[in-house]
Design a binder for these strands. Sequence first.
DNA 1: CTTCATAAATGAATGGCATTCATTTAGTGG
DNA 2: CCACTAAATGAATGCCATTCATTTATGAAG
Lengths: 233, 233
Amino acid sequence: MPASPAAPGSTALGEPRSEAGRRRAGRPVGGVLDKAGITAAALTLIEKKGYDGLTMAALARSLNVAPSALYNHMESKRDVLLLVEDHLAALVDVSAFGAEPWEEAVRKWAWSYRDVFSRHTPLIPVIAVLPVTDAPQTLAMYETVSAGFRDAGFPEERIVSSIVALESFIFGSAYDVTAPADIFDSGSMADVTPSFTGAVRSLAAQGHERPADVAFSLGLEALIAGLGALRSA
Amino acid sequence: MPASPAAPGSTALGEPRSEAGRRRAGRPVGGVLDKAGITAAALTLIEKKGYDGLTMAALARSLNVAPSALYNHMESKRDVLLLVEDHLAALVDVSAFGAEPWEEAVRKWAWSYRDVFSRHTPLIPVIAVLPVTDAPQTLAMYETVSAGFRDAGFPEERIVSSIVALESFIFGSAYDVTAPADIFDSGSMADVTPSFTGAVRSLAAQGHERPADVAFSLGLEALIAGLGALRSA
DNA sequence: CTTCATAAATGAATGGCATTCATTTAGTGG
DNA sequence: CCACTAAATGAATGCCATTCATTTATGAAG
C-alpha cells in the first residue's frame, strides 16, 4: 500500500542468497541464525575488527544474511551485546569457590573477571545496568559467588553489597588496562603539578611491566581484607 | 571546483544568522563559540536532553550556529566531551586535603567524585583513557590529591597506584547509582539460584533508600583502611 | 496431494549521525 | 585601502540502526 517495494520476486533468486539462502530459507534447517550462531559470529567479528566493527550490517554479512534478517531474532543491537556479555560471563573463573579459602577464591575470581572484560570494555556500560534475568550465565556466576560468600560466614544482608563493591572495582579496573602508557604525562603542566608529576615518575622508575596490575592488586587486597572482616565465623 | 555549492552570498544573510550571526561573524567579538561557551552550551543540553540529546547538530543549534562551525574550534565530538569532563573535574571536592585527616579527606573526595560522575556516566569511558595533558582541571585535582597522599606519609611510588585503585572503584560505583532497582531480580531462575536470591531478598529487607550507597560505603571504607596501612608515618 | 499458516529472509526505504569541503564573510594589521 | 585570515555556511558523504511490505519455503492439516 505505501511506497513502492519495486520488482517483486524478480530479483528474489539473484546472487545474494546463492549459497546460504538455499540452506536457510523457510523453517528451522540447521539454525545458523539462532542465538548461539549469532553470538559466535559476533565474537569472531569483535576479535577481528573490534567493537567499532561490530555493526548489524557486518554481523549479518558474516552470517550470509541480510541485516534485516537479524531483527527476526533480536529486538535490537543491545540484544546482541547482551548475548556476548552472557557468553563472556561463563568464561569467568569461579572454580575456586568451595574449593579454596574465601580470600583466594575472591582473588582468582576478580583477576579472571577483570581480564575477561578488559578486552571487552564497551560492554561495561551495558552490564552495569543489565537486569540479571536476561543473562543466565551471569546469574549463574552470581549464584556461585554468593554461595561462596555465605559459606565463608558472611551475613546474608551484606553479601550483595560486597559483591557489588568488588564488581565496581573490577569494572573500573578493566578500563585501566586499556589506557595508554602515557596517560599520566602532565606535559607542559609538569612544573605546576610537582607532587603528581613526582609520584608518576616515581612509579615509572619502578619499571613495572603492567602498571594497571599494580593498582589492581593494591585495591583488590585492600577490599579482600576490608570485606573479609565482615565475616562472623 | 567540485560539486555545486549553490547560490553564493544570496542566502548568506538570511534568517539563520539573524541574531548571533551578526554578533559573531568575522573575528573574536565576544566569543560565544570559544571553549567556555561550548562547554556551557553542552552542559545545558546534557541537563535538558541527556547524553543522547548531545549531538553536534543540537549543540550548534543551541549556539545559533551551523554544525560545521563547531569544527573550526574542535577536532571532533570527543573534544566536546573532554571539555565537559574537565569542567566536571573542577566540581569534585578536594578541599579536605590539607585541612582534615587523610581518611576523611579521601572519604569526602571519593563521595563527591562519585556523585558528580554518576550523573555523567557516558563520560567514564572517555575519562578512563584520557591523557591528563588535555584536561587541566583534572590534572589540578590529581595534584591536590597527590599532595594529600604525600603529606599523609605515603611512599611516593605507591601514590599513583593508590589513586588509580580508588578511581577505578569510584567509576565502577558511578554506574551502580544509575542501575534500575530491579536489576538483581532473578525472575524465573529464582529457584535455581537460592543463595543469590536469598542474599538479594535479605538486602532488600533492610529497606535502604539507596542500595548503591551501601555498597559504595562498604568498599570505600575497605579501601581507605587497606590503603591507609601503606603509610609509613 | 493440495492447501494453508507461519517462521524466516529480503531489499528498499528512513531518519539520524559525525564529519568534510569549497566557498563566503567580515574584521584587523600593514 | 587592501590583503590576510579566522570563522561561519550549507550542501554533500558515508555510515549507522531500524522498519516494513513482500516473498519464500516448509511442515502440518485436511
